[in-house]
Design a protein around this nucleic acid. Structure first.
Length: 503
RNA sequence: CGGAGUGUAGCUCAGCAUGGUAGAGCGCUACGUUCGGGACGUAGAGGUCGCAAGUUCGAAUCUUGUCACUCCGACCA
């Protein structure tokens, strides 16, 4: 058979979840740790996260936020203050009950020194930050306060998958307090836009901005805005959320201030976050059967140079040329920072080296041997395309930024057309049922897609969704008003909602 | 917490119904041949068979207990 050998096995088509794990392993992004549900993020994976942080942090600061840090441990009583919040998180909290260890008499250790009040490891920091806000906010002159925290959080998940859902994960959580309803809403909207901007323009992942239905809301929030992305198996992934918390938390935590007219008012708060799950989204949107494909703007390395030589004499000559080229490329500015160029002079077989770089998703690969040096050029391959060709050095230096921009745009376009092809408007329950179907292979890349349908919040809807394992993703903010009837109940509806199977 | 399953070399696993004292492939190391390419050959390193007890002259294999993990449900960025 003329079947092409792929660097990742199985392929997406054969077994999508397993392919996902193998891409992570092949690119050396992360691996499982001795601690259940917790992963070790390796340098290549962490490099992507650092680039995400760099860009997001700049965007947060541009929109007037400041970074701060709050404790990992939260008194248990804090969580008890907001009923819905408890309901949402209590079941998945790790609890610290002791503060030291002592010998257990059998050569091991046992916890000792029980705490008067147990502490929980933060699953999110609304309560901790809120309690500080209550001290910081006295007057309308103290507002707004716009804080962001880069941190780790822990949620004791039943089922974990690397990057998509782990017990401990890294994220940023923004928390703001405002004097008015309007201002808090604007903040909530603004941060959703920041997320969408980042995910589309840096990750090259198209998203739908929308609002969550009541059942999908953040515990305690008045409204939850979300960005939803489609993965290559056509399942949806929530990539980021921005919550309008109204006065729920300020009432629970006494965040009040004196207004200009002297009366006491509860403040309005928001919170918003994205996590290392974004790396999962990145992997599942762009990667192919040869492994990871990185959008240039987030790649830890934009270019890798592999020197090719036979003997020591050649090696010296080739390496010198390569170092020189590396220096020249590094002096070029891409996306506001110097190009990141790796010179891979490890003593590894050429073919193997090449495939390692393919699996890691490096956007541009350069191979340079005596032949190329004679032509003052290199052999270039793009990760987003299969082909490779000789280029002259001057051409390369002149066009490299343009090529990276092209790759970035190309990845985004590919993802957009994938999503377009798999988005449908459906107007009857029968069609809806047929679309999300029965008995399809859960492991293959056949999970339906996005369905836009009229709806109404009802038991009838939830019953069907549960049966089909479909979830309401969001009510698109951009969706135009359009009269229709709910496909589940026949009730009148004014807007379509996006339904999909999801992660 | 319910239902199923698995723990043997760094990784993937074979061996276990019929106990006899440990295997393969990949990976790793060395040497050689190859090499604008995911190569081949030779030699080698690496395991108290999850842990504990029991049965037995003898246990990876049988029994009991225990721990861990995976998959399927309920929960979720």
């Amino acid at each position: 058979m003329n079947q092409k050998k792929t660097a990742i096995s199985p392929t997406r088509q054969e077994n999508y979840p397993e392919w996902y794990q193998q891409v992570i392993r092949g690119a050396d992004l992360a691996e499982n740790s001795p601690v259940r549900g917790c992963m070790v993020i390796k340098p290549w994976g962490y490099g992507i996260w650092e680039n995400m942080q760099y860009q997001l942090d700049a965007m947060f600061k541009e929109t007037g936020h400041e970074n701060a840090y709050f404790p990992l441990l939260i008194p248990m009583s804090f969580l008890e203050k907001e009923a819905k919040h408890v309901e949402g998180f209590a079941k998945e909290c790790a609890v610290v009950t002791h503060h030291r260890l002592e010998p257990n008499g059998e050569g091991g250790l046992r916890p000792a020194g029980p705490l008067d009040e147990p502490l929980i490891i933060r699953p999110t920091s609304e309560t901790m930050i809120g309690s500080m806000f209550s001290k910081w906010v006295q007057s309308y002159r103290d507002l707004p306060i716009k804080i962001n925290q880069w941190a780790n959080v822990m949620r004791w998940e039943m089922r974990t998958r690397m990057f998509l859902r782990t017990s401990e994960f890294l994220w940023q959580e923004g928390h703001t307090v405002h004097a008015t309803d309007t201002e808090a809403w604007e903040e909530t909207r603004q941060m959703l836009d920041v997320y969408a901007d980042f995910v589309e323009n840096y990750m090259a992942v198209p998203v739908i901005k929308g609002e969550k239905t009541a059942t999908e809301r953040f515990p305690g929030a008045v409204a939850t805005l979300t960005i939803e992305a489609m993965m290559q198996d056509r399942k949806a992934l929530q990539a980021g959320t921005s919550h309008f918390l109204g006065q729920t938390f300020s009432k629970a935590q006494e965040i009040k201030f004196q207004s200009e007219t002297g009366d006491e008012q509860f403040a309005w708060t928001t919170s918003w976050g994205v996590s290392t799950r974004l790396i999962g989204a990145l992997i599942m949107t762009h990667s192919d059967d040869d492994g990871l494909v990185l959008p240039p703007r987030l790649a830890p390395k934009h270019i890798v140079i592999s020197p090719i030589y036979r003997d020591d004499a050649q090696k010296a000559q080739v390496l010198e040329y390569c170092r020189n080229l590396q220096r020249e490329l590094t002096s070029i500015c891409y996306d506001g920072r110097p190009l990141r160029v790796l010179l891979d002079d490890r003593d590894v077989r050429g073919g193997e080296k090449k495939w390692q770089h393919v699996r890691k998703g490096i956007p541009i690969r350069l191979e340079i041997g005596a032949r190329d040096i004679a032509q003052d050029g290199a052999f270039m391959a793009r990760r987003d395309q299969g082909n490779s060709a000789a280029v002259s050095r001057s051409e390369l230096v002149a066009n490299v930024v343009k090529i990276l921009d092209e790759i970035q745009a190309n990845l985004f376009q590919r993802a957009v057309s994938m999503r377009t092809q798999n988005s449908h408007r459906i107007d009857s329950l029968a069609d809806f049922r047929e679309f999300f179907g029965t008995g399809e292979n859960e492991d293959s890349a056949e999970q339906g897609g996005f369905v836009y349908a009229h709806w109404s919040e009802s038991d009838a809807m939830h019953a069907v969704l549960k049966e089909l394992k479909v979830t309401p993703r969001c009510i698109p903010l951009s969706g135009e008003e359009e009269p229709g009837t709910c496909i589940f109940t026949g009730q009148p509806s004014t807007k379509r909602l996006v339904f999909a199977k999801s992660y």
